[in-house]
Design a protein around this nucleic acid. Structure first.
Lengths: 199, 199
DNA sequence: AGTTATACCGCACGATCGTTCGTTCGTATT
DNA sequence: AATACGAACGAACGATCGTGCGGTATAACT
């Protein structure tokens, strides 16, 4: 076999990160452990962390990978829809479907991370805050477009719409999981659609 | 001084638990550490955990104390209101005020605990699930009463109302904290009131 | 063919984890 | 006055945490 190429290195790195995303989804970004992760991957601790330098760098890579999963599952399939209300509707559908899937075995990653770091300053806190803010901005943008098109009442605040959609998805997925309510995500979907004037 | 009375013992125990609630509110129920807690209280680790037996017992006591704080801050002040829509309105107001206060320096305790244990079975998971379920039942009960009084459309599902209120409060408080949005809780309140037909 | 780079390993480190001892000491009961 | 109880302590345990060091084997480059 030829020397480990750059692509292979990347593959090996992403293989670690992807496994770490799955693990962190269950036990949290903070609960992530190099030893546990190394055992799962049949690697040595030093060989694993050597790729990243230290644990925080690994955690940040894991967070970015999780965000990419979310974007690929929720935004990209909906991005092609017409800006405004239709796209919001598509986003909601893919969002619910994403939460229903086992993309993140431990529930919405960004919500878990937010809870873990909302009271703990540092690079991870900032990364998470930036990601949430970016997503809220995307939602708000389409809400504004929808409003301009007359699909939302002129009195509603697009920022409110974005914030409420996110709150419902985030809190609803947690509530549905902890109460083991099979209808939970249906309730979330109903509420989200009602937020943008549909039913 | 007389022998340490039963009341004193209880005080000492609750003093530990109350401090643990504050600490766990920030670093999580799972992140709670006997050493850290003992240091904060200027106690020895053994002297502290001796009151409870083991860590899990302490964690469960902490959870119950947090639930009592929530009940005292949100439910009890609203319990006197007329059942149905008025009481839901009062609950929402106290709920938002509770989230705005620093009763839990690290954000809504039940939400944090739900996220930590929604994918991890055990007594703590069950305790949390039971508490959430109990609270949802209370909300649903008033929603049903409001519906019977004609204050909610007959087509709405009271369970939906309860679930959505909880999702908004839970997810909204996390989102407001991580994005450092001063208007976040106002947006949550607006959405919660809209859920029960008000604005 | 020899050099160089590096991915990975085994191993050990200091720290901290939860827990378990044996002990001390103050108070209440007898 | 003697005894018993229980709260709290200091010390130590085995385990696990993140991290750093030295060695090795492999593959690319000269």
């Amino acid at each position: 076999m030829a020397r480990r190429s750059l692509a292979d290195v990347a593959d090996s790195r992403t293989a670690v990160v992807e496994a770490a995303v799955d693990l962190a989804s269950v036990i949290g970004l903070e609960g992530l452990t190099i030893g546990r992760l190394a055992t799962d991957l049949s690697m040595s601790k030093s060989g694993l962390i050597g790729r990243f330098g230290d644990k925080e760098t690994l955690q940040r890579a894991v967070l970015q990978a999780a965000i990419e999963r979310f974007t690929a599952a929720v935004w990209e399939p909906a991005a092609g829809a017409a800006a405004g209300l239709p796209r919001l509707e598509a986003v909601i559908d893919h969002w619910i479907e994403h939460l229903r899937s086992d993309t993140f075995p431990g529930g919405c990653f960004l919500t878990t991370a937010s809870v873990e770091y909302d009271a703990r300053p540092g690079p991870l806190h900032d990364d998470i805050a930036a990601a949430v803010h970016r997503w809220l901005t995307v939602l708000q943008h389409d809400a504004t477009t929808a409003q301009a098109a007359g699909d939302l009442p002129p009195t509603t605040d697009p920022a409110d719409v974005a914030f409420q959609l996110y709150s419902l998805a985030s809190g609803g997925s947690v509530a549905a999981r902890i109460t083991d309510d099979a209808k939970g995500l249906d309730r979330v979907r109903t509420a989200m659609r009602r937020t943008i004037g549909l039913n």
